[in-house]
Amino acid sequence: MDGVHDMGGMHGFGKVEPEPNEPVFHSAWEARCLALNRAMSYTGVWTIDQSRAAREELPPDTYLASSYYKKWGLGLESQVIESGLAGADEIAAGRALRPGQTLKRKLVASEVPNTITRGSFARSIGAPAIFKPGDRVRTKNIHPATHTRLPRYARGRIGLVEALRGCHVFPDSVVIGKGEDPQWLYTVRFEGRELWGANADPSLQVSIEAFEPYLEPA
């Protein structure tokens, strides 16, 4: 979706402000919020792409005004409610008002070391890759109202395939209920001027990780 989360190239957000000796968490609730998200992901009710989509679908003013962990908390609330795991009335009450469902699995402390690792998103596919390193490609000019990983600034642009990264779960399909629908993934490199026009930094190149359905020959 063409939301405010798709920030590449936007103006007006100001300077980057590094924080010296930044702590891992700035308050206890941030840590709980991160851990809650990880533990709920482990149950397998939704995938990482659906979690991202839930955060992107927050109202734009909320998204922009919320810290990273606040977005995680609000996104998790909406996922819990939309998937029917708990009601808004229960979250408002701060206690369960009805029994829970039986889920596939539940994270226990002894299993945590094995979940610190990310899973693999690589899948096998029958069809060979259409493109190869060195090919000129153009990204498609698409504007799905649902989750996509093709950023606005890189749509309708000509680039070079730099690498083939294997075949991966396709986020655009996952979020609309079409399953993992694995697709070939490429690193596609663009000249700065192709993305930002004649005044772009001539020393700049930018790459995205592009799924095959985002690309056409150029």
């Binding site: 609730w29 709920m40 609330e77 819990v80 408002a92 701060g94 206690r95 469902q101 539940k106 402390a109």
Partner: peptide, 19 residues
């Protein structure tokens, strides 16, 4: 946000989804 996250944790714990 602290209260909101605590409420969510309590609900999800009582529902049996998390430990």
């Amino acid at each position: 946000m602290q209260l909101r996250v605590r409420a969510l944790e309590t609900v999800l714990t009582e529902k049996g989804y998390i430990d």
